[in-house]
Write a protein that binds this DNA or RNA. Structure first.
Length: 819
DNA sequence: CACTTGTGGATTTTT
DNA sequence: TCCACAAGTG
C-alpha cells in the first residue's frame, strides 16, 4: 500500500492483511464480515481517518453509524487522536437515532404526510412512556376496550410496523384481520396526535426521515450529495427502515432492489457479524446483511477472522455453541493468544448461593491483583441483578449497574425534563399534562379534561388555551387562575430559554416551579429516603447540564433535549472509579472485559422461556450466548442455580414459596466438557433436599420481625460453606498468570472493599514454604509446589496425591501443615 | 381536589 | 411480596 505520508503509516500500523484491506478500500460499496474481537472498531476508525487523510475526503461528507452513542464518542476520540480536532468536528458519527434526529432538525419542515401531518424543527422526542400514554388515550377515544387492546402491546405492534418501514396509510392497506385494521386505525390516530404535539417517537426518527427522502427529491438529492461516505457498524442488527435509509442516502434513489453504484468518489462500508445478531425483536433482520452483495453486486468482501481478544479456550467454547445454529455464515475465528484457563462452571443450590459464589470469586481475583473494573457480570434479564447486588453491597464491593433503573426514566427527572420540553415546544401536551399539577397547583383531573376539550374545539395548544380561558365557564375560577399562572410561567421561561444557557434555565425552573421547594418540605417532614434520593437525582441532573455545557458543541436547549432523549444507559458508563460492571447480555454487545461472569444458565431463563417453542428465537438466544462468551478475554465463568425464586418469594417465608427447580441450560451442554470444569452434563442428578447441605440449616432461619438481619444470617451460614469452593475451580486458573493484565501493581484488596467481612475468612492461616506437606480435608495430603503472589496475599499451588495440582488461597481453604 | 385503601400484575432483551 | 395504578372518602 502506498502510504507515503507520515500519518498514513500510523493508520496501518499493527494491522493484519485483511484489516489493511478493509481500511484502504477505494470508492464503492464493501461488506466487512467481522467476527467477535477481530478489531472492527479499530478498522472503522482507521477507515475514516484513511478517507480523510489519504483519500482527501471532506469530513463533512462522512456519515458513520454506531450502535451506541458511547461507541460514537470513542470513535471520534480515536480519530481526533489520529488527525486532530478540526477534522473530527464536522464528522457525523452517532446512532441511527441521533443522526436522524440531527438531520431532521434541519429537514423535517420539508415533510408533509399524505394525511396532512407535519412537524416543526423544534419537535420533541417521546420516550416509551410518553408514546404509550398517547396510544392509550387514542384507544380510549376510539371507545375500544383496553383489555382487548392493551396500550403497551399496541404500541409495540405499531413500533414493529414502523420498523418495517410502513406508514399508517400503507399499513392500513396491508391489514388483513379485523384486529390489524383496528391497529392501523389506532396507528393513524396516534400519528396524528404526535403531529399535533409536534412530537416524534423513536421509530419516527427513522421512518419520517425515510418518508421525507421518498417524497421529496430535493431533500434526497441534498442529503445524498452531502454524505458521500457512509459507514455502518453492527450491520447485522439493522432493520428494514434503517437499511432503506442507508440505501437511499447512498444511491440517491428510492428505488428498491439491485443498486447501481457507479459514481466516483463515494463509498459505503457495512460491518457486521451474523452470529451476533440479537435484536430481531426490534425488527432487526440479519438477512439484510446476507443480501447486501445481491443489492450491491459490485461490492467487495473483506473477512476479519483473526480474534485478538480471547484465549483459545474461550473461542472454542464460543464456536462449539454457535455451531449448533443452522442459519449462519460459515466463519472461522483464528486465535491470536494462548490457551488460557478453562471455563469455570458452578452449580449453585439457589440464586443466593450463586451470587455468593460470584462475589467470593471476585474477591479472590481481586486478591490476585485483578482490578474490579476488569470484571463484568452478565445476565439474561434485568431482574436477576437484585440477588447479586445485595451480596456485593454486603461485601462493600462497588459496582455499576447498567440499564435497570434508568436515570432519565426516574419520576423527578422526567418531571423536570417535561418542564424543559414544554418550554422548548409548548405544543407538547404530554409534557404539559405531566407537570401542570406537579407540584400541586390545585388543578384537578376534571378541569384538565375540560381544558383538553376546550383546546381541541378552538384548535389551540394546552398552553395557549390556558392563557385564554376567560370564556370557558366549565372550569372553576380557581383552577382557571392556576392554569393561567402556570401558562404565564412557561411563557416567561421561554423568554429566558432564548438567550440563557441550559443550566441557568434548569436552575430557574427548579426554583420557580417550586418543585424543589415542595420536595424539600416533604423530605424534612417525613425524612423519606426516597424523597432525599429524588433531590439528589435533581442535583445530578444539574451536574449533567453543567457537564453538557462544558463538552457539547451546541449548548442550547434544543441540543440538550435531543441528547437527553437519545442517550442510553450504556452511554453513561463512566471510566473512572474502580468497580464491577453489571448488565444484561444485550447491553454487553460490542464491549470487552478480561473477566466475564455469565449467570443464570438455566432452561427457561437462558434460553428464555419465551423463545423455547420457536426455533429461530432459540437460535437468537444462542447468538446471545455467543455474544456473552466472546466478551471475555481471559477468564470466563458460568453459573446456574438449581433452584430459583420468582416474584417476591423468599426464604423464611412461611409456606408460600415460589421457587422452582431448574434444568441446566442446553448451552452448557453444547460446550465440549474438556473446555470446562465444575459442570458435568453426564452426572446423575439427584433432587436436592434442603437438609442435605450441612451448613444450610441455621437457627432463626424463618424468624420474622427482623426482616433484614433475619435473612442475612442464614446467608452467611451458607457463605461458610461456599468458601470451601476453591477446590472445585482452582486447578486451571493457575495458568492465567501470563495474561496481559498481570503487569498491574497488586492492589490493596481492602482499599475498595472497605471494611471487609473478615469474620468468615481464615485470618490466622499458617504460612507455608515450597516443599511443605499439608493436609486438606477434601483433597487429602499434598505438597506445596509453588507460591504465587506477594506475601500477605499469596496463593499456594499444591500438588495433591489424589486430586492433582490445585491453587488454593490459605485465607479460605483450611490447610493443616504436616511435620 | 387530595389523600386513602384496594386489587392485580410482575419477568425478556432497548434506541 | 411488592409496587403501580384504579376506585372511593373526606
Amino acid at each position: 500500500m502506498n502510504t507515503s505520508i507520515e500519518t498514513g503509516k500510523n493508520l496501518l500500523a499493527r494491522l493484519n492483511k485483511e484489516q489493511i484491506e478493509a481500511v484502504t478500500q477505494g470508492f464503492g460499496p464493501s461488506l466487512v464480515i467481522a467476527g467477535a474481537g477481530s478489531g472492527k472498531t479499530t478498522v472503522l476508525t482507521r477507515r475514516i481517518a484513511y478517507l480523510l487523510s489519504e483519500m482527501k475526503q471532506d469530513p463533512h461528507s462522512i456519515l458513520a453509524v454506531t450502535f451506541t452513542n458511547k461507541a460514537a464518542a470513542e470513535m471520534k476520540q480515536r480519530i481526533e487522536f489520529l488527525l486532530g480536532e478540526q477534522k473530527v468536528r464536522s464528522l457525523a458519527i452517532g446512532t441511527f437515532h441521533s443522526i436522524c434526529a440531527r438531520i431532521l432538525r434541519r429537514e423535517i419542515e420539508f415533510y408533509r404526510a399524505p394525511e396532512g401531518w407535519s412537524w416543526g424543527s423544534n419537535f420533541v422526542i417521546y420516550d416509551e412512556t410518553d408514546s404509550v400514554n398517547v396510544v392509550k388515550s387514542e384507544i380510549a377515544k376510539l371507545n375500544l376496550d383496553d383489555k382487548v387492546y392493551p396500550a403497551k402491546e399496541i404500541k409495540h405492534a405499531i413500533s414493529a410496523v414502523k420498523n418495517d418501514g410502513l406508514t399508517a396509510g400503507r399499513y392500513a392497506h396491508m391489514a388483513k384481520t379485523h384486529r390489524e385494521s383496528r391497529i392501523a386505525q389506532i396507528y393513524a390516530n396516534y400519528q396524528g396526535a404526535l403531529a399535533s404535539n409536534n412530537a416524534l417517537d423513536f421509530d419516527d426518527l427513522i421512518l419520517i426521515f425515510n418518508e421525507l427522502l421518498r417524497s421529496n427529491q430535493e431533500v434526497l438529492a441534498r442529503e445524498h450529495d452531502r454524505y458521500r461516505h457512509i459507514l455502518v457498524d453492527e450491520f447485522q442488527d439493522t432493520n428494514k427502515a434503517q437499511y432503506d435509509l442507508i440505501r437511499m442516502l447512498a444511491t440517491g434513489t428510492s428505488r428498491e432492489g439491485t443498486q447501481q453504484f457507479n459514481e466516483e468518489e463515494r463509498s459505503l462500508m457495512v460491518v457486521g457479524d451474523v452470529d451476533q445478531s440479537i435484536y430481531s425483536w426490534r425488527k432487526a433482520d440479519f438477512r439484510i446483511i446476507l443480501g447486501f452483495q445481491n443489492d450491491f453486486p459490485n461490492s467487495r468482501l473483506v473477512k476479519l477472522e483473526e480474534n485478538y481478544r480471547s484465549t483459545s479456550t474461550i473461542l472454542e467454547v464460543a464456536n462449539s455453541i454457535i455451531a449448533n445454529n443452522t442459519e449462519r455464515l460459515e466463519k472461522v475465528l483464528r486465535c491470536n493468544r494462548g490457551e488460557g484457563s478453562k471455563v469455570q462452571a458452578y452449580e449453585a443450590t439457589d440464586e443466593i448461593d450463586e451470587a455468593y459464589y460470584v462475589v467470593e470469586e471476585i474477591k479472590r481475583l481481586q486478591a490476585r491483583g485483578r482490578n474490579l473494573s476488569q470484571t463484568v457480570i452478565l445476565y439474561r434479564t434485568n431482574a436477576q441483578s437484585r440477588a447479586i447486588e445485595e451480596i456485593l453491597i454486603r461485601n462493600h464491593i462497588p459496582y455499576k449497574l447498567v440499564g435497570a433503573t434508568r436515570f432519565y426514566e426516574r419520576q423527578e427527572i422526567k418531571d423536570v425534563l417535561a418542564y424543559l420540553k414544554l418550554i422548548y415546544n409548548d405544543k407538547d401536551s404530554q409534557a404539559f399534562l405531566r407537570v401542570v399539577n406537579v407540584p400541586r397547583r390545585g388543578i384537578g383531573k376534571t378541569s384538565l379534561e375540560r381544558l383538553y376539550e376546550y383546546a381541541d374545539e378552538n384548535g389551540m395548544s394546552l398552553v395557549e388555551a390556558s392563557l385564554n380561558l376567560d370564556n370557558c365557564d366549565s372550569i372553576p375560577n380557581k383552577a382557571r387562575q392556576a392554569l393561567k399562572d402556570f401558562a404565564l410561567l412557561v411563557k416567561r421561561w421561554q423568554a429566558t430559554a432564548a438567550n440563557g444557557p441550559v443550566s441557568e434555565l434548569l436552575a430557574l425552573v427548579l426554583k420557580e416551579s417550586l418543585y424543589v421547594e415542595k420536595l424539600e418540605e416533604e423530605a424534612s417532614s417525613s425524612k423519606d429516603e426516597l424523597v432525599i434520593g429524588r433531590l439528589e437525582n435533581l442535583q445530578e441532573l444539574r451536574a449533567v447540564a453543567a457537564e453538557f455545557e462544558a463538552i457539547a458543541d451546541e449548548t442550547n436547549l434544543e441540543s440538550f433535549l435531543t441528547r437527553i432523549s437519545l442517550v442510553s444507559d450504556l452511554d453513561a458508563i463512566k471510566e473512572e472509579g474502580e468497580s464491577i460492571t453489571l448488565m444484561t447480555l444485550h447491553s454487553a454487545k460490542g464491549l470487552e472485559f478480561p473477566i466475564v461472569f455469565l449467570m443464570g444458565l438455566e432452561e427457561g431463563l437462558f434460553p428464555h422461556s419465551r423463545s423455547l417453542n420457536s426455533p429461530p428465537a432459540l437460535e437468537e438466544e444462542r447468538r446471545l450466548m455467543y455474544v456473552g462468551v466472546t466478551r471475555a478475554a481471559d477468564l470466563l465463568y458460568m453459573t446456574l442455580a438449581r433452584r430459583r425464586m420468582f416474584a417476591g418469594g423468599r426464604f423464611g417465608n412461611s409456606g408460600g414459596f415460589t421457587s422452582n427447580f431448574t434444568i441446566p441450560s442446553r448451552f452448557l451442554k453444547e460446550i465440549d466438557p474438556a473446555l470446562m470444569i465444575g459442570f458435568y452434563p453426564q452426572e446423575e442428578r439427584e433432587p436436592i433436599e434442603r437438609d442435605s447441605s450441612p451448613n444450610f440449616a441455621s437457627p432463626g432461619f424463618g424468624s420474622a420481625n427482623n426482616s433484614n438481619f433475619g435473612t442475612s444470617k442464614p446467608r452467611f451460614a451458607r457463605y461458610g460453606q461456599i468458601t470451601e469452593k476453591p477446590n472445585v475451580y482452582s486447578s486451571s486458573t493457575s495458568n492465567y498468570s501470563g495474561s496481559r493484565q498481570n503487569n498491574n501493581a497488586p492492589r490493596m484488596s481492602s482499599s475498595t472493599s472497605g471494611g471487609n467481612e473478615s469474620n468468615v475468612t481464615n485470618e490466622a492461616y499458617e504460612s507455608l514454604k515450597v516443599g511443605d506437606l499439608v493436609q486438606h480435608n477434601k483433597f487429602g495430603m499434598g505438597k506445596v509446589a509453588q507460591i504465587i503472589g506477594d506475601p500477605g496475599k499469596e496463593l499456594y499451588n499444591i500438588e495433591f496425591q489424589d486430586a492433582g495440582k490445585r491453587l488454593l488461597d490459605p485465607r479460605f481453604a483450611k490447610l493443616t501443615k504436616l511435620s
